[in-house]
Every structure is written in C-alpha cells, then in structure tokens.
Nucleic acid binder design. Sequence first.
DNA 1: TGTACATCAGTGAACGCGCGTTCACTGATGTAC
DNA 2: TGTACATCAGTGAACGCGCGTTCACTGATGTAC
Lengths: 203, 203
Amino acid sequence: MTKRGYHHGNLRQALVEAALTLIAEKGPQGFTLSEAAKGAEVTPAAVYRHFAGRDDLLAEVARQGYEIFAALMEFAFNDGKPSALAAFEATGRAYLAFARKYPGHYMAMFESGLSPQAWPDLAPVAAQARAVLERAARGLSQHLPEDKRPPGSMVSAHVWAMSHGVVELYMRGGATSAFPPEDLLETGIGIYLRGLGLLPPDR
Amino acid sequence: MTKRGYHHGNLRQALVEAALTLIAEKGPQGFTLSEAAKGAEVTPAAVYRHFAGRDDLLAEVARQGYEIFAALMEFAFNDGKPSALAAFEATGRAYLAFARKYPGHYMAMFESGLSPQAWPDLAPVAAQARAVLERAARGLSQHLPEDKRPPGSMVSAHVWAMSHGVVELYMRGGATSAFPPEDLLETGIGIYLRGLGLLPPDR
DNA sequence: TGTACATCAGTGAACGCGCGTTCACTGATGTAC
DNA sequence: TGTACATCAGTGAACGCGCGTTCACTGATGTAC
C-alpha cells in the first residue's frame, strides 16, 4: 500500500477513506472531490477513473456505511439469542456504537442529503439494514398478546427515531445533555419497552 | 412593502425571509448569501449593511426560529393545563407541527451545523425553548412516586430525541415509513408514557 | 527470455462558475437653519 | 417654505478562491509472440 509509483494500487478505496476522514472532520458538506483527491495524493482528475463524479464517490461512502451498519446490527441481533429482548437491546446499543465509531459513514448515510432512491446502489443495502431492525422488533412483538401488538415496522421506526435523535442532538457537539448519549438511549428504550409491556413495570 | 425605490424599507427582514425560502427549498447548505440577496432584489453587497456576513444571516434565521419555536411550545404547554399529561402531549404535537410549518427555520436551527455557543445571540433563546420542554416533563414526573421518577431533563431529552428523529428520518423525503410522522410520534410517545407509568398499561 | 504493443491509470493544464467579501461611489432621506 | 448638508442604505465593479469537470497527454503495467 505504501509503495506508490505512477499507479496507485487501490485508488478507489483510498479515495473512499480520504472522503471518510474529511466528512468526519468537517461534515458531509465540507467534503470536496478535490480535497479527497488531495488526501489520496492524487490529481482531482484521477478521481474520474473510478467515480462518475463527486456525488458518486459520496454515495459509495454511504453504501459501504450501510453494509458495515447492517453487518453490525446483524451481529448484535445474533438471531434473537439469548432472548428476543436481549437481542433487541443489543441492536440499540450497536446503533449508537456504529454512529460513534464510524462518524464519516454515519454522516454520509444520514446527513449528506443524498436520497437512496436516486442512487440505485444504495437502496438495497439500506433496505437490508432496516430489515435487521424490523426483524428484531418483530421478534419482540411476538411476546405480546396479538391484540396489543403494534406492527414490527412501527416499533422499529420508534426505536430508530429515538436512536437517530440521540445521535444528532446529543452526540454531535451541539446540544449538551447532563447524560451521556449511551445512557440516554438505554434509559429511553428501557422506558419504551416497559410501555410495550415487555419489561416489568418497576425494574 | 411593495413600494421600492432606492431604499428598500425593511431589507433586513426581507433577507431573512429570502433565506428561509432558499433553505426550505434546498437545505441549509444550498443557502447562499448571493442568492438570498437576489431573492430580496438587492445586490450581495447590500447584505453587509445588515449582517456581518453569510453565517450571521443564517444565525439570525435560526434565532427567529428558536423564538417562534419557544413561543409555540409555550402556547401548547399552556401552563400545564388542563392536565400535566395533556399539556405534555400537546407540546409533542407542537414540535412536529413546527417542523412541518417552519421547515426553513427548523433546518437553520438543527441542520445547518452552526453551534449555539459560537453565536452569542443564539444560546439564550435556544435555552429558553429547551426550558419549556423540560418544564412540561417535570410537570409530568411529579405524578410519579419519587423513587421511580426520572429527572425532567432526561424525560425531555428522550422526547426531544424521538421527535427530532421522526422529523429527520420520516418527514424529510428520505426514508418512507408506512405511518405518517404525526402518528409515529404520537404512538411512540404514548408507549413511552405508559412505560413511565403515566398511562394505564392497556388503553 | 526478450521485445513490441495494447491497455489504462494518473497527469497537468485549462475551463467556466458562483461564491463571499471589499471598496469607492451615488442616490434618497430627513434634519437644521 | 425653501435650501444646504449630513447621514446612510444600496450600487456596481472588482478581487481571489476553490469548486467540479474536460481533455489531450504520458508513463507504467502486463500480455502476446
């Protein structure tokens, strides 16, 4: 990787990584094709050998993010073991861990403003990530009497919303809370699960 | 307002409104000092009679947003009447209504990336908005036995996070859910409140 | 093993563009006398 | 009421900048013979 003659070796991925660093540092809008090229020690024009343009590179960053994200959630879910509840809570923690460990990916996915439907490569892998969360939510719901069972897609939407809100409001510099984001999400989801009837009313 | 000679009349506010339109249309990063000037039918240089620069104008948009936001929340809260619970739920609905009716303000406040601490004018009015939510949450918590009472700041953080998450994920074009954002937030907060022990376990 | 040649990844210069910001200015407004 | 003048809001031209993108090119690589 360090040898570098006229040919780079793996410029495509080097550009993705340079973009990640930039996005994590300055936000998805501070990211620039030219600067990414500079980060990979290459001329801006070289980027066009591998990507259709600026947005295409950004979309690839997001795509890789969704893949990592889906894999992490899948791993945390662990086929619903040891229990649907434990698996669900693990996915919640995994969400925040992903946002913390992969800020560049997270921002490209959720803060860059590029829509999954406009980028064909993005839609399937985004759907896959969402599917894991929904599966976890459905697993949970099955322990509820059928007439009081909200749809899995609704439960997962609630949890996703709260997780995303915690990331955006309390993990990014902006608003500071008295509570660490991780605690905030854990208590929030705990209360929510109790509301679903899945935790004893007073644990 | 329509008469327009050499002097504009109220250029300052006209610029704010032009900025709002731009932000609502193209997001907070699509907003440009030059385009805002054009929107107000004025030369870019004229902006500097009223604002220190691009970011200063953006901050003023956010500031006005926080003021409207705080007022709306205050109105919805209605001093905790008719009940702490009803008032709390009303603030939740008001949050979403604000995001829907004032998209430009909302984006300037929460998606533009300008930090309240960097803009001295912003901090107090942002704190004021947050205070309303916290008051509503504290009012709620008082109906709980003291040993099971989470801090008001925590409850308000939970609700704020879920509200913001619903706005970002399901109200902006991006992810589409089977449920309208309003329903999503109402059911989500309902379940959460049940988890707090403030709603009967099976309503 | 050595050489000719096709392939193709990256270069370097150039482009047009819109940006934020500055500056000396000018035209309208309103006040003092 | 009329005029001189200070004030100041907006103009218009100019700036330097970095952007994304294009193009003809060149140098390295690897394959065919």
